[in-house]
């Protein structure tokens, strides 16, 4: 059975109508789980409200925090403070130092790079080797492929093609997300898989990047965030009565 996850819906969480229309469309397109970016100071009530909205459409809600630290110190500080607050942590790497640290840090789930500036895409062989040793996954947003045109799209496609090859060689998992901020940019997972053909991803790889890979991240982090988790490989099986 197809189980598709879109880990990156860019919503204005304060605008209820916008959130409603996006989640409704995602559900109609067949996504079973959606990741919605919350602010780092989001309250439990706000998160609960989003969860209820998603469940009203039969969609599982994943909390996600997007960070764009300017230095390694800022990255480490943010990870210390926010890791247990969200199920998925995504880092937009603005410098090479941040990219290297994010790739080797086990608290980072997704690493992303600038979609408009090719000089700020630091996913090379060294980065891939670091990422393969940790749990970091390369995330590719699909919305810019729809909105960019001409030279910018050509450059982006060329960068993505190279990065997909590097990631496959180093066995770094790839997650494809919509990155959509309006319903018109949202497509079904099968349609996105067709679009992934443009940067050299095989259909089965693209499907995996929309289903198994994000599912593994969410399940791993939910296990870690549950009260039964003690340490990697150790969890509470049963509790005593006293």
């Amino acid at each position: 059975m197809k189980f598709y996850i879109d880990l990156h819906l860019c919503l204005q969480t304060s605008n209820f109508f916008h959130v409603n229309s996006m989640v409704e469309k995602a559900a109609a397109l067949g996504y079973k789980t959606v990741g919605i970016t919350i602010s780092s100071n989001a309250t439990i009530e706000e998160i609960q409200k989003l969860k209820e909205l998603c469940s009203s459409f039969g969609v599982d809600f994943v909390t996600r925090i997007d960070l764009a630290p300017k230095s390694v110190e800022e990255l480490l500080k943010n990870l210390r403070n926010l890791r247990r607050k969200a199920e998925v942590i995504s880092i937009e790497c603005l410098s090479k130092q941040v990219a290297r640290q994010a790739a080797k840090d086990r608290r980072v789930d997704l690493i992303r790079f600038s979609l408009v500036n090719p000089k700020r895409r630091f996913f090379d062989v060294a980065e891939a080797e670091l990422a393969s040793g940790s749990s970091a996954t390369l995330e590719i947003d699909m919305a810019p492929l729809l909105t960019l045109q001409g030279f910018r799209r050509v450059v982006l496609l060329s960068s993505l093609r190279r990065e997909v090859q590097i990631a496959n060689k180093a066995r770094v998992p790839i997650v494809l997300s919509s990155g959509a901020d309006e319903p018109i940019l949202l497509r079904g997972a099968d349609d996105y898989c067709s679009l992934a053909y443009l940067f050299g991803m095989e259909r089965f790889e693209a499907r995996k990047a929309f289903s198994e890979n994000p599912k593994a991240i969410v399940e791993r982090n939910r296990r870690k965030l549950s009260i039964d988790f003690v340490a990697p490989g150790v969890h509470v099986v049963r509790r005593g009565k006293s």
Partner: peptide, 12 residues
Amino acid sequence: LDMVKASIVAII
């Protein structure tokens, strides 16, 4: 087929 499907999806 892959080319045409990608072209259809890329329409905004």
